[in-house]
Structure formats: C-alpha cells, structure tokens
C-alpha cells in the first residue's frame, strides 16, 4: 500500500546535504555553473556539490530539478476533483483518470469521497469535457470539480 517503507528517511541526510537542498530548493542559481555558486555559498567545491546532488537525485530524495509554472498565468485552468468510487470500480476508474496528462496528482484518501485528483487543461470547457468523458467511460456519474477561488498559500519547498 504505502510506499513509505521503501523510501530513505531523514537519517540518510547530513548537515551538508540539508544545506545544499535548502539552497537548491529556493535559490537555485540561474547561471552557467549553478553548483559552483552553491558551493561558494556553502564553502564547498563544485565537485563535492555535484556528487552530493547526484546521490540525492539517485536516492529519490530530489524528485526533480526544474521550473514550476504558474498554470493560470500560462492561460491554463486547474481544478481539484473528487468522486465516491466503489472498491469494485476503483482499478478501472484510476486507469481512465490517470491516462490524462492534465491529471497531475491523484490520491486515494480515507473518506467517503475517496478519490482526489488535480486536473489542468487549456480551458474550463475542456475540463468539463474531460470529466464528462471520464464519467461516460467509468459509469461514475458524480465527479465534483472544486476550482480554487483564492490562493492563500502555495509552498512547494519545505525547509529541512
């Protein structure tokens, strides 16, 4: 069920790992040799920073290094969807939903409304169309879309 047991824990990190992760989460230098600059900030060589980042990446502690976009600003619409999916239909429902590239997160949660997924698409019409397609393919008639009205906080990084 839960992947937790396969994942490395906090004990795998030493202080330098933490310092490097904190730097490259929030202040990744947009320069030709970013790891040299991170090294300079922390008093390490570029080679040492690179070796550590490579290891953290290989271990899966770093999921990804890259750009996170403001989907609304790019002209896309996003929403959070939920449905009450009976156990017997779960596998098929998840298969259908996950095939959409615009479904970026999908969680099984302990609740009557047990499926929660995020959906990003170029327009509100396309979102409605996708939800109609999912309903038609799975027989799950009620999929609620709960678009954000106001964002009070979004923090993808996490101090270590």
């Amino acid at each position: 069920m839960n992947q937790k047991n396969n994942e490395p824990g906090t004990e795998a990190l030493d202080d330098l790992d933490r310092a490097i992760l904190n730097e490259i989460q929030v202040h990744f230098p947009i320069v030709s040799r970013p790891y040299a600059e991170v090294g300079q900030r922390l008093g390490l060589s570029e080679t040492e920073v690179l070796a550590r980042v490579q290891r953290l990446h290989d271990q899966g502690i770093i999921r990804r290094i890259g750009a996170n976009f403001n989907s609304r600003k790019l002209g896309y619409t996003s929403t959070l969807c939920t449905a009450e999916v009976p156990e017997a239909q779960m596998e098929q429902f998840v298969q259908v939903v996950n095939r959409y590239a615009g479904v970026t997160h999908n969680y099984l949660r302990r609740h009557r409304y047990n499926i929660w997924f995020t959906l990003i698409a170029p327009s509100t019409e396309r979102i409605e169309q996708i939800l109609t397609e999912i309903s038609a393919q799975t027989g799950i008639k009620e999929i609620y879309s709960l678009p954000a009205r106001q964002i009070f906080k979004i923090q993808a990084d996490f101090p270590l």
Partner: peptide, 22 residues
C-alpha cells in the same frame, strides 16, 4: 520568465517525507 511570474519557482523538488514530516 521568473521576473514576469510565469515561472513560480525554479529549483529542486524534494520528497516531503524526507524532511522528517512523515
């Protein structure tokens, strides 16, 4: 693109569980 707000953040994405908040 960062200055104009199209890129919200550039950097590493870390597994939350690693931070001790399991």
């Amino acid at each position: 693109l960062m200055a104009r707000g199209y890129i919200r953040r550039f950097g590493a994405t870390i597994r939350h569980r690693i931070s001790g908040f399991d």
